[in-house]
Simulated assay, not measured.
Amino acid sequence: MQGQQAMQQYQQLQQQIEQVQEYVEQVEQNIEESQETVQAVKQLEDAEEGSEVLAPIGSGVSAITELKETEKVVVNIGSETMKQTDLEGAEKVLQDRQENLKSTKEELDETLDELRSQMQEIQQEIQRQQAEQQEE
Score class of each variant (00 low, 15 high):
Gln29His: 10
Gly78Thr: 02
Ser51Pro: 03
Ile64Gln: 14
Lys92Glu: 13
Glu91Gly: 00
Asp96Pro: 06
Ala40Phe: 05
Leu87Ile: 03
Glu107Phe: 02
Val93Ser: 08
Glu28Phe: 00
Gln43Tyr: 09
Glu45Cys: 05
Glu48Tyr: 09
Gly50Glu: 02
Glu32Ala: 15
Ala63Glu: 14
Gln84Thr: 15
Glu80Val: 10
Asp113Val: 09
Leu108Arg: 07
Asp86Ala: 01
Glu52Leu: 13
Asn100Asp: 14
Lys68Gly: 15
Glu49Pro: 08
Glu28Pro: 04
Val27His: 02
Lys102Ser: 09
Lys105Glu: 13
Ser51Ala: 10
Gln39Gly: 11
Leu94Lys: 02
Gly50Arg: 01
Arg97Phe: 09
Glu88Met: 08
Thr37Gly: 05
Gly58Pro: 02
Asn30Ser: 13
Glu49Thr: 06
Leu67Ala: 06
Val41Tyr: 01
Thr37Tyr: 06
Lys102Arg: 07
Pro56Met: 03
Glu45His: 07
Lys92His: 12
Leu67Phe: 04
Ala55Asp: 09
Glu114Gln: 15
Gln29Asn: 14
Lys42Leu: 08
Thr37Arg: 13
Ile31Cys: 02
Glu48Val: 09
Glu28Met: 06
Ala47Arg: 11
Thr70Arg: 05
Lys92Pro: 04
Lys102Val: 03
Gln43Ile: 02
Ala55Tyr: 15
Val38Cys: 04
Gly60Ser: 00
Asn76Met: 02
Leu112Ala: 05
Glu71Ser: 13
Leu108Asp: 03
Glu25Thr: 14
Ile64Asn: 09
Asp113Leu: 10
Ile31His: 03
Glu106Ile: 03
Glu71Phe: 01
Ser62Met: 08
Ala40His: 14
Thr70Gly: 02
Asn100His: 12
Asp109Cys: 06
Thr70Tyr: 04
Tyr23Asp: 14
Lys68Leu: 12
Ser103Tyr: 08
Ala55Ile: 15
Ile77Val: 09
Val53Pro: 05
Thr81Trp: 04
Lys102Pro: 05
Glu22Arg: 15
Val61Phe: 14
Met82Phe: 15
Met82Thr: 11
Val53Gln: 07
Thr65Gly: 12
Leu101Phe: 05
Asp113Gln: 15
Thr111His: 07
Glu99Met: 07
Ala55Gln: 15
Glu88Phe: 06
Leu112His: 03
Lys68Tyr: 10
Gln84Asn: 12
Ala63Phe: 11
Val75Trp: 01
Asp109Arg: 08
Glu25Leu: 14
Thr37Lys: 15
Glu45Gln: 08
Ala90Cys: 04
Ala63Val: 13
Glu45Met: 10
Glu110His: 10
Thr104Pro: 03
Ala40Glu: 10
Gly89Glu: 01
Ile31Phe: 01
Gln84Tyr: 06
Asn76Tyr: 01
Ser51Ile: 07
Ile31Ala: 02
Asp109Asn: 14
Thr85Arg: 04
Asp96Arg: 09
Ile64Ser: 11
Gln26Lys: 11
Glu49Ala: 10
Gly50Pro: 00
Val61Thr: 06
Lys68Pro: 03
Ala63Asp: 11
Leu112Glu: 03
Glu80Pro: 06
Ser79Tyr: 11
Thr81Leu: 09
Ala55Asn: 12
